[in-house]
Design a protein around this nucleic acid. Structure first.
Lengths: 283, 283
DNA sequence: ATAGACGTGCTGTTATTCGGTACATCTGTA
DNA sequence: TACAGATGTACCGAATAACAGCACGTCTAT
């Protein structure tokens, strides 16, 4: 779910080339752009898949062929191949519908997203504005893995390297992700609240409170709960449907933070995470 | 995220027809099954899309053509059409990768899932075992909509009709979904805790506690918080990645519930929701 | 400077897809 | 019951559309 209702989400991506055959002959366009040959079979097949993915119940062959302007036999043939490929199933009532394999492929896109590249500009911005160590993190069980890091420009540095990991319950990047999925992770993490500093949250009660506060304010704060006197601030990166798949964080020694500076950094972190989330909406 | 790490999720769906051309000539199979003609263009195009969806960074033309056993020119052509159709983009470094449109199409499958049909057996089971009113609900803003209902067989009935809705914070189906997305919905619902009975949760503090308890136990309990002396029990239906998209609930007047019966029903509800979630993994 | 690998455009040939037709089944109506 | 229309599926020859091979410009690394 994630906020959006499960039915009828309008697609922000325009349907390119709705009628492939329409441009096969007409080149009367003032701009002499390359006509860009498209394989019609592939195009039609994907159109069918797209249409089926938006169908509440399945749809029939004739029905589909009429909507897409295709021959019945052609539509049938394409549906047949899509079925044997596992992207479509046909129920006993002769109705065709998209399978979860379609969903899986789409999910794979997100799972293998090159966040590093997409988030790079925002990480750079954060580094420039704060001068502190910037982290890009993804969840891995009850830890976070830092898949990208921009080194601090300050003389005093924090030292978790790129590729390293940290427990989810005591760093800001981790807590931002934990808060976003607390319903699923609470039971798993309750017995793994390992203590690293005297600030570390080690009881479920305190974690509950901290997660509630984190959810309320929209970003996470670590007051030196993993490394002594190393503070961090983190916010979640979300897909268009609200799923939190990663987080951005800033880590800094407390001595670097003058009064009010922490709030500035929090705002920047949220802004950065929000920026990446927005970017994800458009490719 | 949702428990599963964002990288390298093994696909449970086998790749049917990895080499389409392999079966075009050989029919020496003992079983004389229909050869099932597949449109090779569509097949290859989807193979490319699938491969691309699993690629961390983009992939090159030659690279792809080698892996899939296709001609370089053929691969290029297919990539070209996929690009103009918006499913693929090619970066400045000449690397091709899948776009979020692929994800959107997959997402649409889930959004338009005919849960009614899929959940029907479990709803039937619940009805048979409990004899009470059974609900299948999806989220809609801060409410739930009952997209399916099996009427109670008991003389005393609860009366929310199929198609009706109820506030998320006071019915079990709603609370199960609320708990599954509490990080996103908490701030939205805090000012909408409308009172319906003396049992209704109207303060954020009490809701926090109830949600924590719900998350901990895995199902939601409504002690007559919407309709006086009408209790309900609900559990979330989740996609393979953990997203809660719907919920199943049982509603019953308190007089129908003998001692210990409530726990039986809770177990059944969880079992039913779990069953539907499992079904979603295989189409 | 050179050799290999890469992405891209072109073209003729062939294999592939296409459209028409046919038929069995089903539904609702006269 | 008979009929009319719509449906899903099978088949087949024709021609179109997709294919393989080659050529070219570019880039990288040796």
């Amino acid at each position: 779910m994630r906020g959006a209702p499960p039915f009828a989400r309008p697609s922000p991506v325009p349907d390119v080339c709705k009628k492939a055959e329409a441009l096969s002959e007409l080149e009367a366009t003032t701009k002499i752009e390359r006509p860009v040959k498209v394989d019609s079979t592939l195009s039609k097949g994907l159109q069918i898949l797209e249409t089926l993915s938006k169908a509440e119940n399945g749809r029939g062959v004739s029905d589909l062929s009429r909507e897409l302007g295709l021959t019945k036999s052609n539509t049938f043939r394409l549906l047949q191949t899509l079925t044997t490929l596992g992207y479509v199933r046909n129920s006993k009532t002769k109705l065709y519908s998209a399978t979860m394999k379609v969903w899986q492929v789409g999910q794979a896109v997100v799972d293998h997203l090159n966040l590093t590249e997409i988030a790079a500009p925002q990480l750079k911005m954060l580094s420039k504005e704060t001068g502190e160590a910037i982290y890009l993190a993804v969840p891995d069980g009850l830890s976070v893995i830092y898949i990208e890091k921009v080194e601090s420009t300050q003389p005093i540095r924090s030292f978790t390297p790129k590729g390293g990991s940290a427990p989810m319950h005591c760093v800001a990047t981790g807590k931002a992700l934990l808060a976003a999925n607390y319903d699923l992770l609470r039971e798993q993490i309750r017995d793994h609240l390992v203590k690293y500093t005297e600030k570390t949250i080690t009881t479920l009660k305190r974690l509950d409170a901290d997660m509630a506060a984190t959810q309320a304010r929209g970003y996470a704060i670590d007051t030196g709960e993993y490394r002594h006197r190393i503070l961090s601030f983190g916010a979640a990166i979300r897909l268009p449907n609200g799923d939190a798949i990663a987080s951005i964080g800033v880590s800094a020694p407390d001595v670097n933070l003058a009064a009010g500076r922490d709030q500035e950094i929090c705002d920047l972190v949220m802004q950065a995470a929000e920026g990446v989330s927005e970017t994800l909406k458009s490719v």
